[in-house]
Amino acid sequence: MKMVFTYENMIFLLRGLEITLIIAFSTIALSFIFGSILGIARFSGKGILAKLSAIYIDTVRNIPLLLFIIGFRFTLPLPPVASAIASMTVFTSAMVAEIVRGGLHSVSHGQWEAAYSQGFSYVGTMIHIILPQAVKKILKPLMSQFVTAIKDTSFCAIIAVHELMYSGMIVMGKFVTSTQAIILYALIAIIYFTLNTALLKLSNKIKF
């Protein structure tokens, strides 16, 4: 029986983890930017921009991520990792947008009126009064969405991106017994778990 915990296997999995982190954090950074823009645009409620945002968000949120991952890989001339990042960003941005919009809505209307009564413009009120309060409220749901994004990178295994999950499946090919398979999957689960728990613990430390 071959050993699961060999040096080669571990290095192989770590390389996979590296790709997972690259996809996850690129997705998180890009989704944060696009999601915030979309969320604010939809919140603002008027004009063509708000309508387009709403259509985008509602469409994307109602289609499974896996379809985006596969669809992008087969239709766009992008290398596998880039395609994975693009598809996951398209999906996660819509989620982030709804979290941002929810946060903006949770700031009471009275805060807007107080700012307007003092002479703040719409943009000034947004920047100085509303966004700082919304950020506090969306921090937790946002972090939870980012953890989901990290877990969702495992879907990219289906387009043969060498992230953690796919690397695990390759290593699996060398084994024959179910015990070995279980040990390997448990190891992968522990890696995801540790990474995400650490991230959530870290986010709890953020205070305003």
Binding site: Q111, E113, A114, A115, S117, G119, I129, F208
Partner: peptide
């Protein structure tokens, strides 16, 4: 916005900036 700078308002629900 400029005109409103010279018109103060006190609200039923106070509406102080919470942050």
């Amino acid at each position: 916005c400029r005109i409103r700078q010279s018109i103060g308002m006190v609200f039923q629900a106070f509406n102080l900036y919470a942050h």
